[in-house]
Design a binder for these strands. Structure first.
Lengths: 336, 336
DNA sequence: GTGAAAGCGCTAACAC
DNA sequence: GTGTTAGCGCTTTCAC
């Protein structure tokens, strides 16, 4: 920049002024500076600028994962609105909740000048990362356990899971089994809603099946379910697991929904392509991402209140639910 | 850092020395500094460090998309290795190849202090973004058209598509139809490999079906295919489209692989859960991401040569392929 | 080994 | 409007 200033016969702040538009510059000097910039093919050094202004336009997103459907879509929503507002998004994956892992991942991130941080608490890694964010940083949590002192955007999964469970009950199922995905705490919203619906209806609460994020883990559970003839309806933690469960059922000779009704969660793009098409709860993950960026922006701009934003997933009824097969439901369910 | 130095009773350069390990420090002072860092919860400012050293530790990934399977997995691979090496990853989505869109998206990104850029050229947006990277920036292209002056990491999709097509031909199909996904240029590797296999075997080359990234677009094409009784085998641009195609076929009363054999591409996690399980080419996207970061790192470290890294996808044979249904293949194919 | 001094390239604050 | 003077927070000479 000093070169440009010399070439144009002005001072460096003047060059800076034409570059940033922070203050008016006379047309003559402006032209001279622009000519010099063009001749020298000068590109301002972003590092120096960031250091001098102290106003980062970068937000960090920390998550346990980036490629699973819900995560990827949420990140897409965040990036989309952030980009519109001239912010850039930095991604940090925290692979587990272990201290060493979290510290290592967060160190490189918080060393950057950050306008704010959004933590995806769909799982425990994201929740752990949240605690490593330096105090004073604008911060928004997504989903997971309710926060007291941090702004939070969520999808009301408990409500939707309750509806889905009630839907299954309404079809005549005695009770509904549940396959859960890894959660950020003891009990996630989907599991809570499922339990609540069963309790409200006075139905037995079966033991919970624990899946990983891999569809394959759903398949293994599906085979188990096929063998347990007391199970006629299953609520899965997400659609990918539900598809795995259906596959496992199929492998063992069970048909959906004739023998077992299965519902998923999320409305994955492939859910409607499945055989049978999956009944599920549509979650607007991209919207969740957008809302969380909105909350973060308010904080960056000085709104100090802790805010909360919630949206309700909507039921999508497709072909994977039906009445119980009387030949199956005969056996006594195992209460949890 | 000045605070830490004061707290520890040393000078700032000494603090810097314990932080970077650039020069030996006496055990006593080192301990004092470490204690002060811990007490003050001090985190070094990466921007200031970048300014002083001229070596930022941030890389930018520009892509047309972040949430589709191949993209998301590639990004995951990049982030994973980058993080191990102490780099942070910035994500920029370029929604289309239009100048205004590309410029807007890239402006915020290249204004950041960047160690390098990785451009995902799976589609045209990524390819356009590549041209906006300031000269002199370390740069690696992923997939897409072959680059002359830029290091590039690819998956040999053409080879795998050729194998897949040959597999279908070996099952007795007269020819193979193709459904392609949006590409970065006139003809992507998968389409090229498919065409080559057909040419080598002297088979007619049917018209190509154009899908979007949405599985639903595959479904519409599947219905079309069901109606065209000359088609007995289909190679799809990716697994999600293949699942859509199978769904469309099913809706129109066609069974896979009895009436039509369908193969996908990528080995999506749900491909093996599908009914029938999908025959496909396994693509190691995360590995692709890792390789591309390796290439970028070499450039950052001063290796000036343009490098090229290629890996071969592997065939995964499952149940979606069979012999042609003689009742179907009777009609005359429409050559493209 | 360690501290003082001098930048890295830019913008902000202040005079003029 | 425009130049001068100070930093932003760190690393790097260079003496000691």
């Amino acid at each position: 920049m000093a070169n440009v200033a010399a070439r144009a016969g002005v001072s460096t702040p003047t060059v800076s002024r034409v570059l940033t538009g922070a203050a008016p510059v006379s047309p003559a000097k402006r032209a001279a500076v622009e000519a010099a910039i063009a001749e020298l093919k000068f590109t301002p050094n972003a590092v120096a600028r960031a250091l001098a202004t102290g106003q980062p336009r970068v937000i960090a997103v920390v998550a346990g994962n980036t490629s699973r459907y819900g995560y990827a879509e949420t990140i897409r929503g965040i990036e989309e609105t952030a980009r519109e507002d001239g912010y850039t998004v930095m991604i940090t994956v925290v692979e587990s909740g272990e201290d060493a892992v979290v510290d290592h991942a967060m160190a490189a991130t918080i060393a950057q000048p950050l306008a704010g941080v959004i933590a995806l608490k769909f799982d425990s890694a994201g929740a752990a990362a949240l605690r490593r964010v330096p105090p004073g940083t604008a911060l928004v949590a997504i989903s997971g356990a309710r926060e007291r002192s941090v702004s939070q955007a969520i999808l009301d999964e408990a409500g939707a899971a309750e509806e889905l469970t009630e839907l299954l009950l309404a079809h005549g199922h005695r009770t509904v089994s549940h396959v859960r995905v890894p959660a950020s705490r003891g009990e996630d919203g989907r599991t809570m809603g499922w339990r609540r619906a069963l309790q409200n209806a006075g139905r037995p609460i079966p033991e919970v099946f624990e899946a990983t994020w891999e569809p394959r883990s759903g398949e293994a559970i599906g085979r188990l379910i096929a063998l347990d003839r007391s199970i006629t309806a299953v609520l899965c933690g997400n659609d990918e697991i539900a598809m795995g469960v259906i596959r496992g059922l199929l492998v063992e000779g069970c048909t959906v929904p004739r023998d077992v009704s299965v519902v998923g969660f999320d409305d994955h793009p492939l859910a409607e392509m499945w055989s049978p098409p999956l009944t599920t709860a549509h979650q607007d993950f991209a919207g969740l991402g957008r809302r969380s960026f909105g909350l973060l922006k308010q904080q960056i701009e000085g709104v100090r209140d802790v805010q909360f934003s919630s949206a309700r997933p909507t039921l999508v009824v497709r072909g994977s639910v039906g009445a119980p097969n009387t030949a199956r439901g005969a056996a006594e369910p195992r209460d949890g």
